[in-house]
Computed example of a mutant assay.
Amino acid sequence: MPVSPRRSVRGSATGRPIMAVLDLLGRRWSLRVLWELRDGPLTFRALQAACDDISPSVLQQRLKDLRQGALVDHDGEGYALTASARALMPTLLALNDWAEDWAETRA
């Protein structure tokens, strides 16, 4: 079943939008797919390779989930982030910066 705000999702019956997006982004490989598309569209095979040769069936399911969540779309060049996902990228880039700092303190 597609993830949608205002409907119950894994781990929450509230339907709060934050819980729906955490469910979608928390699925295995979802964030990695978004991350690999941050610089532009990729074909299925290029995306699969960028994701360390993720299995085709898992990638297909993740793309389906992300398309239903309006975060990824397919255009003539391949799979690409939607405007909504591009708006999410500054948050993910900030999280990446934080993670780099965190890793430095753990070294």
Rank of each mutant, 00 (worst) to 15 (best):
21 V>H: 07
103 A>N: 05
55 S>N: 02
10 R>Y: 11
55 S>K: 11
76 G>W: 02
28 R>S: 12
23 D>F: 04
65 D>E: 15
22 L>I: 03
104 E>G: 05
89 M>I: 07
70 A>G: 00
102 W>L: 09
90 P>Q: 11
53 D>E: 14
105 T>F: 03
13 A>N: 14
98 W>D: 03
48 Q>P: 09
10 R>S: 06
40 G>W: 07
70 A>E: 06
102 W>C: 08
57 S>K: 12
95 L>I: 03
69 G>R: 00
65 D>Q: 08
105 T>M: 09
91 T>C: 03
45 R>Q: 13
5 P>L: 12
89 M>N: 01
36 E>C: 14
20 A>N: 04
61 Q>F: 01
8 S>I: 07
84 S>P: 00
59 L>Q: 01
37 L>R: 05
55 S>T: 03
81 L>C: 11
76 G>K: 04
76 G>T: 09
68 Q>D: 15
16 R>C: 05
5 P>H: 12
14 T>D: 15
62 R>W: 01
30 S>L: 06
97 D>K: 01
45 R>M: 10
72 V>W: 09
84 S>I: 03
98 W>G: 03
81 L>I: 04
58 V>Q: 08
27 R>F: 03
78 G>D: 05
103 A>Q: 12
96 N>W: 03
34 L>V: 06
77 E>W: 07
67 R>Y: 00
41 P>A: 15
93 L>G: 00
59 L>C: 05
73 D>E: 15
85 A>L: 01
68 Q>R: 08
94 A>G: 02
101 D>Y: 12
51 C>V: 09
9 V>T: 09
98 W>H: 08
5 P>W: 07
77 E>P: 00
61 Q>V: 01
105 T>S: 15
43 T>Y: 07
41 P>V: 02
51 C>R: 05
71 L>M: 13
43 T>E: 13
22 L>Y: 08
45 R>Y: 09
94 A>E: 10
26 G>T: 12
60 Q>M: 05
4 S>D: 14
81 L>G: 13
